[in-house]
Design a protein around this nucleic acid. Structure first.
Lengths: 341, 341
DNA sequence: TATCTTAATGCAAACGTTTGCGCGTCATTT
DNA sequence: AAATGACGCGCAAACGTTTGCATTAAGATA
């Protein structure tokens, strides 16, 4: 009973006493099928819930045109920014008639490799990916490109590869945020970043430093820390606030960290934002859930996902050349709330 | 140059001067191929990065066994609970050798229908789905079942269909939470729920009512409201708190709403939890980002996703019968934090 | 040496489509 | 009345696999 086989063109052809070729052409609205036959066949298909077998179509076309399935690799799904990006990818893909297969790398190189391989076997037409933190080898990516599968990076790009990428303007976003903090009275702003071999960390750090320079301040190593999550922030921040020359502002690489800083400061008796200002990055749901609400640099994940998908599909469809990397940048926007003056 | 075609068995066969059949058998470790040939072929394949064409395999097997691709439908991805579930699905699917295609319905029936159709065409082996709020027709689901494609619901199930489902114990979770509020001193607990034709709303409401009964309290209509997001909560709550006989506790159907209630109360000068206690449902990132941190009923999305995937794959592989609906319930746990006494 | 096993391989059909080519039928043109 | 052309349709190959069956060659037995 499980064995109900789906209706095929062959079935229709047999029922209607015509050839499979005729059925195919009729359903594709080919002009060289007589009007009556065409309509007869289409009606039959409609009434009997005929669905074309994409697998067969794809096999038939495999030499000439790629599939319409995009592979998406995320370091992790449960993460506001990544979920937003995925949502943007899904919407745009659907809009342009593509489907997505998704997999998470869990920040592990090995998984990333396996996923790439599996996507190759499944004949995706291209891959949208943010590198795992772990990844320091790129053969798996190169192999894809060698096999003619286009690649678009988002968020965590692969600087060693000249591939297409869509990122937010980390430098500008940070620059504007830190400038704002200084202009509203901060004299010593600290920077909490991630692993400094990630492009995204570097760019934000540069934005931070330049903002200081342009306001006549000098970056100081004791104010630049590697710290990108809440529990680390709660451990690290008390020491920072007890320095002789304590910071009066913190810029954090994400909202989670910023919230950790903020609550730690409050717990220690500092007023936010009067004594200590805090700014995050992302504008996740958290940013409006804390008290006071978080000032943060909004990065529009949906837009990043949407653009990455456009770039990929344009490449797949030949509207963009495979051999030239398309690099796009999505604007960030400073959202001022309660944790800055 | 884009035209680099992937290596096929035919290519290998030609290179090595054997037939395609031999290559196939050698790569599948068939015993009736001589050891030397087998190793020769496998080595060649390895060295030249041969990847089997899943599309072709699938077509070949289409009559006998289903594909290894699971279709997943989410009302929306950017939603902590749904993202957790998706993550759980992805992990379990990968573990069992399946891939997932994902699509969001945006809470619209029409989209849901289109997605089902597209999944059928793409020959997914089964579908994991949470209904759109919108959906009140079930033909698209029935059509799937009729075509032998198993269906597993999560979160928002379809009561009209006797299909497999994995949900959390909404009733028990709510019952325990409200009981806890009463036992720690609340005399009048309000309930903010969703659209009452959703199973999940009904079950939670029942849990709420029974908790009242068992503690000698009577539910009162003026304390039961339809309100499931923050902005509605901020509009509705002031009136509630200015009633002559105001509630001293609020149970909300999700964390977002609970946070809206909590901040509104604080803004109006009530102390939380002393004057007003609040409890949410989900235990999202928000719950630990607010101040005080939110007491809430934790629903483990990863586990729900994982179990739903197990049920689906077991059905696909024939370990569970198609005709009997498997119904599973995942335990919730009350997480007590700062918004209750 | 002739016959029988057994092992190793190839042939070809099938999965469900698409599509170039050719064939027959009919109406139009000379 | 013969030639031309258009139209509508079917044949068959192809996409990359898998697999039942036939085939071959070698070794074992009589």
């Amino acid at each position: 009973m499980n064995e109900k086989q789906p209706l095929t063109m062959k079935d229709i052809a047999a029922q209607l006493g015509v050839s499979v070729a005729t059925v195919s052409r009729a359903l594709k609205n080919s002009p060289n099928i007589s009007k009556q036959r065409r309509e007869l066949i289409q009606q039959y298909a409609r009434e009997h819930d005929y669905y074309p077998n994409v697998i067969a179509e794809q096999l038939r076309h495999s030499r000439q045109k790629p599939s319409q399935i995009i592979g998406v690799i995320l370091p992790q799904i449960v993460h506001y920014y990544f979920a937003s990006i995925l949502s943007g990818i899904e919407e745009k893909a659907k809009e342009r008639g593509y489907r997505i297969m998704v997999a998470q790398s869990d920040e592990q190189y090995e998984r990333e490799r396996e996923i790439c391989e599996s996507f190759m076997k499944n004949k995706v037409c291209g891959i949208i990916v943010s590198q795992a933190k772990d990844t320091e080898q790129y053969d798996h990516f190169k192999k894809l490109v060698n096999n003619g599968i286009p690649l678009v990076f988002y968020d965590r790009i692969c600087p060693a590869l000249n591939a297409s990428r869509v990122v937010v303007d980390d430098y500008q976003g940070t620059y504007k945020a830190v400038s704002y903090m200084i202009e509203t009275g901060c004299k010593r702003v600290a920077f909490y970043g991630s692993n400094m071999n990630m492009e995204i960390s570097k760019n934000r750090l540069n934005g931070y430093k330049d903002a200081l320079y342009h306001h006549g301040l000098q970056p100081s190593d004791e104010l630049i820390k590697q710290c990108d999550n809440r529990s680390d922030a709660e451990k690290l921040t008390p020491a920072m606030l007890h320095m002789k020359n304590r910071p009066d502002g913190f810029f954090a690489i994400n909202d989670e960290t910023a919230i950790g800083i903020m609550y730690t400061a409050k717990r220690l008796g500092f007023r936010v934002p009067e004594d200590v200002a805090v700014c995050g990055f992302t504008d996740s749901e958290r940013a409006v859930s804390c008290d006071p609400m978080l000032t943060t640099v909004k990065q529009d994940g949906r837009e990043v996902g949407s653009q990455a998908t456009d770039v990929l599909i344009d490449t797949v469809e030949g509207k963009l050349p495979m051999d030239r990397a398309e690099k796009r940048m999505v604007r960030t926007r400073l959202v001022v709330r309660g944790t800055t003056r």
